[in-house]
């Protein structure tokens, strides 16, 4: 790990003052955003809960126990509250009409593809990677199965194949990374019959989301979920109801989660430097005391 002067100064500031230069860290995070990142915009006001995206996802990722597309017409499953798991990298949940009226809302959830993913910073073997194209991908070849990424993810998206003895792996949406580099659209976006999911450059999707909200403020709440959440995500959402009513975690930081642990790790060099001096000083002191006593 190379340490440049700026990082060193930050370590010095954290170590000596015990405080984080948050403003500087934010500026750094913004400069790391790439215009080349692709993303998705889900317009929850359009989603009809048909679950075709669930089928397409399972099909495209060749997940085990495939089910025919007709099986996804079963809407009774919407009565349960589900989260993505090892067999379903994306799931659709139904949120009944709020007290204020309106109709049921459907929410498709999957990995948010953070700018600075907590999972990637938490991984002790570097199995996660934020690709130049935007998707956060996971490589099974080094994973030891500690599941710290599941703990770290503020959206609780990664899942684990607990039933595998020899080859357990983390399962999560990879934004159809292989399809993207072939120039194709991710499976869920291409199958959506109501065009609730738009694939494109993340920067352009944010403009689109804002334009939609501005042009129809009655239809949308003024919040693009993912613009700032967890320091920004490649997957964006707009909705007709406040996001906390739709099962989105409302207590999500607007700074990257990786910063919380990076601050701690930056104190390591100071402990490594100061402790030996203190301990050897104490040792020398006790030795001298004994010499004088004799």
């Amino acid at each position: 790990m190379s340490v440049n002067r700026r990082d060193f100064m930050r370590m010095a500031a954290v170590g000596l003052a015990g405080a984080a230069p948050a403003a500087e860290a934010r500026a750094d995070a913004d400069s790391r955003i790439s215009d080349a990142w692709m993303g998705m915009l889900t317009d929850l006001t359009l989603c009809v809960g048909c679950r075709k995206c669930e089928w397409a996802c399972r099909d495209a990722n060749q997940l085990p126990e495939p089910k025919p597309i007709d099986a996804y017409d079963d809407k009774t499953i919407l009565e349960q509250r589900r989260r993505p798991d090892a067999l379903n990298l994306t799931v659709v949940n139904q949120y009944d009409a709020s007290a204020g009226g309106g109709s049921s809302a459907y929410v498709k959830s999957q990995c948010m593809h953070c700018f600075e993913p907590a999972c990637a910073s938490a991984c002790l073997v570097g199995a996660y990677r934020k690709t130049a194209q935007g998707p956060v991908v996971y490589d099974t070849s080094a994973c030891i199965g500690c599941r710290y990424c599941l703990v770290a993810c503020p959206f609780e998206m990664p899942a684990y194949t607990y039933n595998s003895a020899m080859q357990p792996v983390v399962k999560k949406c990879m934004l159809c990374f292989e399809r993207i580099i072939e120039g194709k659209t991710p499976a869920c976006a291409s199958i959506c019959p109501v065009e609730a999911i738009t694939f494109g450059k993340r920067s352009e999707l944010l403009q689109l989301a804002r334009k939609k909200i501005e042009s129809d403020p009655q239809r949308y709440v003024d919040h693009v979920y993912g613009e700032h959440e967890a320091g920004g995500t490649c997957w964006l959402y707009i909705a007709g109801r406040p996001f906390e009513e739709l099962g989105f975690p409302s207590n999500v930081d607007t700074t990257p989660y990786a910063e919380r642990t990076a601050q701690f790790l930056s104190t390591v060099p100071f402990i490594q430097t100061i402790w030996p001096a203190v301990l050897m000083g104490a040792y020398a002191f006790s030795q001298r005391r004994e010499t004088l006593a004799h």
């Binding site: 790990m1 990637a120 910073s121 938490a122 991984c123 002790l124 073997v125 570097g126 199995a127 080094a142 994973c143 030891i144 199965g145 500690c146 599941r147 710290y148 684990y160 595998s164 080859q167 357990p168 792996v169 990786a258 642990t261 990076a262 701690f264 790790l265 390591v268």
Partner: peptide, 27 residues
């Protein structure tokens, strides 16, 4: 017992270190 693939226990130190992880420091 807890690790999914315990036989990969040396990986963080000798094969693919993930130095941004607190878990790496613990290991």
């Amino acid at each position: 017992y807890d690790l999914g693939r315990p036989w990969r226990l040396p990986y963080p130190l000798f094969y693919s270190p993930g130095v941004t992880s607190v878990m790496f420091e613990v290991a």
